[in-house]
């Protein structure tokens, strides 16, 4: 109990720092990949602190409220995850958060952000099956949805779930809104329709959105780590290494691929989920029988 309180507190306090640093590393590495010097490592923090100092403009007050709800649900997801509760519940709360983002974008009435919002829904549909498959996979391997039990299993879950892990890493690109799947909004310097859900956010709301994304990324990286950790403490170090490797892979994909059409993304992600995760789980079920 005490451990879980500590880890929740650590998540709530440290996730923005880690998330921001990851974002900074991302921008720096991306710049180097494009043979540029790139912004300083702490640039994401400079950006957010500036956004918070600017005049507050919001298209409607409802947008601020909905974005705050989005943030709170993401925080709740992460807190539940690091408290070691039910992983299925975590994922449902995560989907709820995505709904709030959808509403926050549509409530402005701007065509750009409305289109972005509908694309966000398509993205949700694209990654949801793989997320649920991961939960099912964890249950089959460890006999429980409890994260604390999964994390303290005898053997790392990835040993039984390589296909599910691959599918999860694939949809991570969609979830983190990285190219080729930065369809609902892009992190690069773009405008209007490509900026999608963030296109009508005033300075402060954009700061809320950015910080929420950091929390979300840390949570997602936590799920990646969950595939690796077992009851051996050394596995935590391995998990961190795998997280960095996966993160680097995301940056590489981001910088080497062009944006896809939304329905092609949907087809591709479902196919990959079905083939990799589906077959993996099928084999697992045969083995258990």
């Amino acid at each position: 109990m005490r451990n879980s309180i500590i880890s929740v507190a650590a998540y709530l306090l440290l996730a923005p720092v880690i998330g921001g640093l990851l974002d900074g590393i991302d921008r720096k590495i991306s710049a180097r990949m494009q043979r540029r010097v790139g912004p300083p490592l702490l640039q994401p923090f400079y950006d957010v602190s500036k956004l918070l100092k600017k005049q507050v403009i919001s298209v409607t007050n409802a947008q601020t409220f909905l974005l705050m709800s989005y943030m709170i649900f993401i925080l709740l997801t992460g807190a539940m995850f690091f408290a070691g509760t039910d992983i299925l519940l975590c994922m449902f709360v995560l989907s709820t958060a995505a709904m709030f983002l959808y509403f926050a974008a549509t409530v402005t009435g701007s065509p750009y952000s409305t289109i972005g919002a509908s694309r966000e829904l398509i993205q949700t549909i694209a990654y949801e099956p793989a997320v649920l498959m991961s939960c099912v996979g964890f249950y089959l391997v460890d006999g429980s949805f409890e994260i604390s039990k999964i994390a303290s299993s005898q053997i790392s879950s990835i040993m039984y779930l390589p296909g599910v892990f691959a599918a999860f890493v694939f949809i991570l690109t969609i979830k983190m809104r990285k190219s080729p799947f930065d369809i609902s909004t892009s992190h690069h310097a773009h405008q209007e329709i490509v900026k999608g859900v963030t296109s009508e956010m005033g300075a402060r709301n954009l700061a809320i959105f950015t910080v929420t994304e950091w929390y979300e990324n840390v949570f997602l990286m936590g799920v990646v780590g969950l595939f690796i950790v077992n009851k051996d403490p050394i596995s935590i170090a391995v998990a961190v290494a795998v997280i960095f490797a996966v993160f680097f892979l995301e940056i590489l994909i981001d910088n080497t691929s062009a944006r896809m059409k939304q329905y092609e993304m949907l087809k591709l992600s479902w196919t990959i989920t079905l083939v990799l995760a589906g077959c993996n789980i099928w084999v697992l079920m045969l083995m258990i029988k």
Partner: peptide, 13 residues
């Protein structure tokens, strides 16, 4: 971008 300059399309940002 090394100065932190980003080209944004949104006047509100």
């Amino acid at each position: 971008e090394r100065f932190g300059i980003v080209n944004t399309g949104d006047p509100m940002q």
